[in-house]
């Protein structure tokens, strides 16, 4: 994963990790699947840079391939008392199946040990309309579980999450108690969901404000008109002021994403020319050309 030899030194591992962390940094990387790759790189680093986990990993041997069911060796727990903090904490929620199985909670290993379960973080994509009306969305999560033979398998489970009206990009929802179960008498962790909007063909969103293009005919823009516009929360009649040009913003106060205060909705005008595809249309354009003293290069 990190492209280092099996006997790489700590310094070599660190260097390889940093190089890849930069290459696949999800916020700036242009690489395909940067986010997934970064997750793998993080895992590999977490394992190889911790002497305890590296020893465990080495002992697994070379037989294991990703995708196989992983069965802990019979003496799995014996020699490896993980100190915990770094691995069960940190970015543990971002770890993929393989490593979660390897190092995930071993379930009540030490009697009398209590700890609060980990918080989990995930991103969800919702529709803009969900932010206007609120919605219930099914969120699918994968968590390690023991099957009837005591093996650790990944179990998918769905949560029906009520998305409150008025959420916007980058806000975080908290589902109390939906993170990892606690150990002993510790309470369960929480699940945090970061909200992102699916790209919408008609609307663009910035914070609570929503932008849409409103196409108008030249006479509507020139003379002013009442036109019908479709908004995420229904249709409205909008007054296009006389003398409007392409790019003019019409603000509909409070018609953006609801909240206190609600966002605004901006209709960005785009003047669309009718095609000169008939003798009648051509004649009208020719009349304008001859009768109007208009030079568009002079007006700016």
């Amino acid at each position: 994963m990190l492209g280092v030899a099996r006997d790489a030194t700590a310094e070599e591992i660190k260097k390889a990790f940093r190089r890849l962390a930069r290459k696949y940094h999800p916020d700036v990387s242009k690489e395909a699947n940067a986010e997934a790759r970064m997750k793998e790189v993080n895992e590999a680093h977490a394992v190889l840079s911790d002497p305890e986990k590296r020893a465990a990993y080495d002992q697994l041997g070379k037989g294991f391939r990703a995708g196989q069911d992983f069965r802990p060796p019979p003496d799995w727990d014996a020699g490896f008392e993980f100190s915990g903090r770094d691995f069960s904490g940190g970015q543990a929620a971002d770890f993929s199946d393989f490593f979660s199985e390897l190092f995930g909670r071993q379930g009540g290993r030490a009697a009398g040990f209590h700890a609060r379960g980990e918080d989990h973080h995930a991103k969800i994509l919702i529709d803009l309309e969900d932010a206007y009306q609120g919605a219930t969305r099914l969120v699918t999560l994968r968590t390690p579980k023991a099957d009837e033979h005591g093996r650790v398998v990944m179990a998918e489970h769905g949560l029906n999450v009520r998305i409150p009206k008025g959420v916007h990009e980058g806000q975080v929802l908290r589902l109390t108690g939906q993170g990892s179960p606690g150990m002993g008498e510790g309470s369960a962790g929480d699940l945090y969901l970061e909200i992102h909007f699916k790209p919408h063909p008609r609307y663009r969103v910035e914070g609570r404000d929503v932008y849409a293009t409103l196409r108008v005919a030249p006479w509507e823009a020139a003379l002013g008109a009442s036109v019908k516009a479709t908004l995420p929360d229904g249709n409205v009649e909008v007054r296009v002021p006389e003398g409007s040009q392409t790019g003019r913003n019409l603000r509909l106060k409070g018609r953006g994403i609801p909240g206190a205060p609600p966002g605004d909705l901006y209709l960005v005008l785009e003047v669309v020319l009718p095609p000169a595809d008939s003798p009648r249309a051509r004649a009208l354009y020719q009349t304008m050309a001859s009768d109007l003293a208009f030079d568009p290069r002079e007006s700016r």
Partner: peptide
Amino acid sequence: MTTEELTAALLDEV
């Protein structure tokens, strides 16, 4: 499979 509906708290409100 039916699951109960969970109400999410919006950070910023809480």
